[in-house]
Amino acid sequence: MTELALRRSLVSAVSGWTLGAALCSLAILAGGPAAAQDCAADNGDLDARYCDANGDLVADAPTDPAELLNPDTLVFAYTPVEDPAIYEDIWQPFIDHLEEVTGRDVEFFAVQSNSAQVEAMRSGRLHIAGFSTGPTPFAVNLAGSVPFAIMGSEDGRFGYTLQVYTRKDSGIDEMADLEGARVAHTSPTSNSGNLAPRALFPKLGIVPEEDYEVVYSGSHDQSMLGVVAGDYDAAPVASEVVDRMAERGLYDPEEVQIIYESKPFPTTSYNYVYNLDPALVEKIKEAFFTFDFEGTALGEEFGGVEQFIPIDYKDDWEVIREIQAANGVTYTPEGLAAE
């Protein structure tokens, strides 16, 4: 079996397991206990268990000190990736720094799906997490996550683009050539992998599922590998993901081409759960904003990133919420179940 065939076999097996885990998580998410609060203000899209008195679109911290969490061990999770074991090693320098600044033990939690990650934070088993762009509003509204940081440059810039890749020998050289093609979208809740294409491509004269067949691959990695292998004719993917894949030698950039690129979107958001003790939250923020990427495995993995910078969910995720609204997305367990 070739290396590529082996990789595709493993990806298929993992995807099958992940689906079962996600369905289990969603069952818990839909049926778990929810202590709804009596809020004076309009909660917007937030679940009934949360309040938003200041209108910043994220859950307020509980007013009752007895409801605050102050765990001895903090649980941290990065967004689901093809090989969580690799990313646990990559994140270790940051975890060491987080332990030093907070004075707490930190456990890395390898999540298998966006649904499982949201459920883990909602149920209180996850305290700090990096949520992908598209799932971030689900985490905010269903799990009480509070986005506060993003990877960026020293001058405060951050973001990634939606890129559409094809093989150079595919005969597909522009968006109009996607007519009748088999195109890999990642997952229903993914921003660059599904929602943005559905909102943006019609303006280019190409309507997903009308002009081309949509096939869900499960991840940006699998979409890109599928294009390289010829399983898909094209794929919309996040630039930051395919750049890292190229750096790791997972595909040959000479075999593919970009036929479309969007304006920048925000990348993975870093969040704490709303009911963490405020003093602990300040220590967590301090750890993020003082971490030095230079010379670490994390800095090598995320090339061009120099620091964590502050974000504002209400402002910085506005374009994402608009794209999701255009796609009829609702921030409910049923909406997340599409994952």
Rank of each mutant, 00 (worst) to 15 (best):
S25K: 06
T268V: 10
L336P: 10
A149D: 04
T73L: 05
M1V: 14
N70E: 14
A61T: 13
Q307N: 06
S25Q: 05
G299W: 00
R321D: 08
A13V: 03
Q222L: 10
V146N: 13
Q117N: 15
S113W: 09
D47A: 15
D177N: 09
S192L: 13
P264G: 03
Y87L: 15
I259N: 09
G152C: 12
L225K: 12
F131T: 07
I172W: 06
L98I: 09
Y313D: 00
L200K: 06
V140H: 03
I309H: 05
S217H: 00
V183R: 00
E210K: 11
G134C: 07
G295P: 11
E174W: 00
T166P: 06
A120Y: 12
E240Q: 14
E107L: 06
D312V: 04
G159H: 09
G152T: 08
I86V: 14
P266A: 10
T133V: 12
A53L: 10
D177C: 03
F94T: 02
G16V: 02
I284V: 15
G335N: 02
T296I: 12
P33V: 09
A297I: 05
Y216W: 07
A5G: 11
F158G: 12
A40G: 08
L162I: 00
S269I: 11
A143K: 04
M224K: 10
G152Y: 14
S153K: 15
E318T: 00
A41H: 01
P208Y: 03
A279E: 14
A337F: 10
E255C: 05
F138M: 02
Q324P: 00
Y274R: 02
P84A: 12
E306R: 10
S219T: 07
S153D: 13
V273I: 01
W91I: 07
S145H: 06
D47E: 12
F76M: 12
A326Y: 00
D45Y: 05
D60P: 11
G32E: 09
V58W: 02
M1K: 09
E318H: 04
G156W: 04
K285D: 06
V227T: 06
G171H: 02
